[in-house]
């Protein structure tokens, strides 16, 4: 009975129920022909003949997401540092970040579509999503040092750069690491939506093609692949976050 209340056991059980329901609804035809059973989706993903297709698409999407992730992180941290040294800029920077975040990616896509070549829209949209989350996390993190630590550095006559390097940045790392974890799905959303707006290749392209051409199993496989990539990256980022929290707090 204790075992049945363990949240981990229940979580696994819930995942199992979810998978069984997916399979059952698909196999029985309850969901119509557009709901394939899980086994057929997995079979397609496991089919070596398809690996080339999925591999190229996933590689392209992943590359967009990674490029966006890196540049978004740099931009977010840089903006947070700017407002850290020039606090007068903070309210406007907050609005800018909130504005960019509140505006649906769909609304931004056309602007970049016109400004940039089609294959650079996915990384750009990924970068914008990441930049907002990292900016918010980094701005909060750079303010996280305790009053006692700040007093210490002031009495020690610390130069602002020494303070940033030896106090504010290390004290902010846990918050930045949390932001980096939350930014993982944001990077993939940006990449996939960017691909929907007309990139030559990628999982987003597979998804849209699958939808428009009634390649139902392909559609579900590509979506599942995006989810699996995101989940894996998210778990890795979570492990890094825990390590940073243990070290810097």
């Amino acid at each position: 009975m204790r075992l049945a209340r363990d949240p981990r056991v229940l979580g696994v059980l819930g995942t199992l129920v979810l998978c069984l329901a997916w399979e059952g609804i698909g196999a029985s035809g309850l969901g119509g022909f557009t709901w394939p059973p899980l086994s057929r989706v997995l079979a397609m993903l496991a089919d070596p003949d398809r690996w080339d297709l999925f591999g190229r698409a996933a590689g392209s999407t992943l590359a967009s997401a990674v490029v966006g992730y890196i540049f978004g992180t740099l931009a977010g941290v840089a903006l947070a540092m700017l407002t850290h040294f020039l606090p007068r800029l903070a309210p406007g920077a907050d609005r800018l970040a909130a504005g960019m975040h509140a505006i649906p990616t769909v609304a931004l896509a056309p602007v970049f579509l016109i400004l940039l070549p089609a294959d650079s829209t996915p990384p750009t949209l990924a970068g914008i999503g990441v930049a907002f989350l990292v900016y918010v996390a980094a701005a909060a993190g750079l303010r996280a040092a305790s009053a006692a630590h700040r007093d210490l550095f002031q009495v020690l006559g610390a130069h602002p750069s020494a303070r940033l390097l030896r106090l504010d940045l290390p004290a902010g790392l846990p918050s930045i690491a949390t932001g980096l974890r939350l930014a993982v799905p944001a990077a993939l959303i940006g990449a996939v939506i960017g691909e929907w707006f007309g990139a030559p290749r990628g999982l987003g392209v597979l998804i849209v093609n699958g939808m428009q051409n009634f390649q139902i199993v392909l559609l579900w496989s590509a979506v599942l692949l995006v989810a699996l990539i995101s989940l894996t990256a998210y778990l890795i980022a979570g492990a890094i976050e825990r390590a940073v929290h243990a070290r810097f707090r």
């Binding site: 006692a148 007093d151 002031q154 009495v155 290390p170 070290r247 707090r249």
Partner: peptide
Amino acid sequence: VAARQGFGVAFQDHALLPW
């Protein structure tokens, strides 16, 4: 005096850097 590191301070909050 602070600018040439002339002070030594210890407060109730030990303010050691945890990392």
